[in-house]
Structures are given as C-alpha cells and as structure tokens.
Design a protein around this nucleic acid. Sequence first.
DNA 1: TTCCAGGCAATAC
DNA 2: GTATTGCATGGA
Length: 208
Amino acid sequence: MEKLQELYDSLIKKYGRQGWWPINNKYRPGNYDYPNNNLERFEICVGAILTQNTSWINVVKALDNLRKKGLLDPHNMSIAKEERIGELIKPSGYFNQKAKKLKEFAWFFLSHGTDDNDHDVPKREELLEIWGIGPETADSILLYAYKKPEFVIDAYTKSLLLHERIIKGDESYDMLKSLFQENLPKDYKLYNEYHALIVEWGKNQAKN
DNA sequence: TTCCAGGCAATAC
DNA sequence: GTATTGCATGGA
C-alpha cells in the first residue's frame, strides 16, 4: 500500500505543513516540539473534547472563554461547577455533555501528575474508560498532547479513502487505523501532519 | 430555512 | 455486533 505515502506527498505538496495542534489559536508549521508543559498539554486535550462533531471555529470561542476565566487549567477545571463550565463552552455546542466530559477528564489528567516533569502518559485503554472519550479523541490526545504515534481516524479520513477508492466504506475505526499504521513509518510527526492534512482536505471538499 | 461541523453514549434491533 | 437517535451552537 504505497498509495498512502503517495497520498501524503500529494497533500503536503498541495496544502503545506499545518502546524498542529494549535495552542492559543497559534499554528506552528514544521515545529513538532509542542506541547512543552502541562498547561499546553491540557489545552490540547480540552480542544480535542470540545471539537467532537463541532467546527473548530466554535471551539476557539469556547477555549477563549475558558482561558479568560482561568479555567483552561486542570486544577481550576476540576473544581469548577459543571454549570459554570457549560456557560463558558456554549459556543462549541453539546455544552451540557461536554462540561461533564471536561470535568471528568480534568480529574483524570490531575491523577497522572501535576508537575511538568512528573506527568505520566496515559494508556489508550484508560482514556477509553473515561466517560466522553472515544477512539478518535483518545488517539488525538495521545498523538497531539503526548506525541505518541497513534493515527487519528475521523469522518474526513473515511471520506478521503473512499474518494481515492482505497476502501469500500464499511471498515471499522480500528481497521482504518491499522491500514495507516501498517503501511507508514511509525512516526508521530508523520501521523501529526497526515491527519491535519486530511482535515484540511476535508474542509476544502466541503467548499466544492 | 435547512444542513452540517476535526464524536460519543445510550438505546434498539 | 450493527444501526439509530439525542446532544446544541453558529456559520454557510
């Protein structure tokens, strides 16, 4: 399946490096060093939860609201009332559910260490046990917040593979993930860029 | 006005 | 195990 590498090459040629994951709405093309502390790491996780079935532009509004009130922080988030979180994240939709998800995740995050130099990388299984964290969100957190080579599959990914006639369309999340991971070098920087490029491709498709 | 966006859990069959 | 349905705001 050399197609996947060729597909990547064509996407990067067309769209260029994407600079994911944006921190404080800033993209850093070609720089894969972020996050470099726990606050940045937490912000990525929060964004991953808020963007579930939601356009990123609405997520930015919610993140800005949380930041202004000091709640883009695991300690403050964990002790905040769900209603208060819900008010601040309203623009990102599903705010009742997402407020609960964020609080649950904040506690989990804290349980893995509060110090920049003493914070454990969570296992995929334990992320999936958290209410509100499914396979895509878990892989997004592992890839973008923890720099682990876990390929992220989303709705655009399936759409692109269908478009390229690489799949039939009835494949599961895990099957699609394996397809990428078994046919590409196990490199978090490559996975980072590839998923971001697929999203960029998807956004452009919608315009046509 | 309708449709959908960087999904997930609950429920139904 | 696979198919539906509710969750919700804001922009096109």
